[in-house]
Write a protein that binds this DNA or RNA. Structure first.
Lengths: 193, 193
DNA sequence: ACGATTCGCATACCCTCGGTATGTGAAAGG
DNA sequence: CCTTTCACATACCGAGGGTATGCGAATCGT
């Protein structure tokens, strides 16, 4: 076995993060016990506190990871299209589809706001997935596809709509019906001119 | 002092509920200590467990109370209008305004889904405020003001949009801008015919 | 190359706080 | 008036987050 200190550190951190993610997604933040996460990761609670300042700290790192992955998924779905409007639609659909992932559902959409506080949650959301949304809306407004307007409130409206609908789909809602409703909603934003 | 047993029971229960609501709204569920709530209500932890089966039980009762008040506020705002469309708009605006109430914000929108689980939260939401929304949409669809479509996904979209935007306003977002964005979004739903 | 130092973790411990089991005195019931 | 019920209080338990400290192995300075 190799034994570089930096390597070992990274390995342990990843193991904790991976196990934490599994459990946070499956059981929810509150029911996860940190010592069990550490044990399953092959270390003890001491290691967890060496890498993260608290249970919430591990959770925060997990949120960051899941957020980033989600942002990439959404972005890559959007990038497959040339048309700005289709980019928005594709990104939104990708987000709705991501709601089936328990990690996204439980960690990002349900627990994160309560555990980290809405402010911090929103800040993290902004720097990953939500940013794409505001950028897309800004571009659409500049291109005249939607009315020129402050994009921030509109982005919040759509972000909330997507979050809630993703959860609804995950709990048995019809994905196709959701996409159609979303399409109607988005279509209503286009300039009538 | 009078001393009917039923009276005393009601008094204590209300005191616990009121104090719990204050603290849940101010500090968030996790940071609230049940014994402190009881002490501030003039009783001990034993009383709290006599009235509610757990800390989550007290929280659940609090959620119910806040939800119901919110539902009434929204409904009464809507009822001030004759026109179905104006009822929807008024209800939505009332909801956004309610987001300034810390109890609504923290208890209903942030903590409740995490503490009670999304399913139970949604069930409670449904029997108070969200129900009005689906009813309004159904009526509008029947009246031909909006396209005939499954109302459930649309209701989820709008409900999520309102929740998130209420939080955004509470954290410094411009209420007027939010209402305008909401109006555009809703207006897009009207039948073009 | 070898002592000094850092560092990645383990071990042992504390303490808060949710939950429970049991006691008690005063109202309700017969 | 005696019994029962009931609305709490009191005492206790244990889980689990957080901390203080020890230790052995990698890293560094000379």
């Amino acid at each position: 076995m190799v034994v570089s200190r930096a390597e070992q550190r990274a390995v342990t951190r990843q193991a904790l993060l991976a196990e934490g993610r599994r459990r946070f997604a499956a059981d929810g933040y509150h029911r996860v016990v940190l010592a069990e996460v550490a044990r399953a990761a092959g270390v003890t609670k001491g290691a967890a506190y060496h890498h993260f300042d608290s249970k919430a700290g591990l959770f925060r790192a997990t949120v960051r990871q899941v957020q980033q992955e989600l942002g990439e998924r959404v972005a890559s779905a959007a990038e497959r299209h040339e048309d700005l409007w289709e980019q928005l639609r594709a990104g939104c659909r990708a987000f709705l589809a991501a709601g089936t992932d328990p990690a996204v559902r439980r960690i990002l959409l349900v627990d994160a706001p309560a555990v980290l506080g809405w402010d911090e949650w929103r800040a993290l959301d902004e720097e990953s997935s939500a940013r794409h949304l505001t950028e897309a809306l800004t571009a659409l407004a500049e291109a005249g596809v939607i009315d020129d307007q402050p994009v921030e409130p509109l982005a919040r409206l759509l972000s909330g709509a997507l979050n809630e609908t993703a959860l609804w789909i995950a709990r048995g809602g019809d994905p196709q019906a959701a996409e159609q409703a979303l399409d109607r909603l988005l279509a209503g934003l286009r300039t009538s001119a």
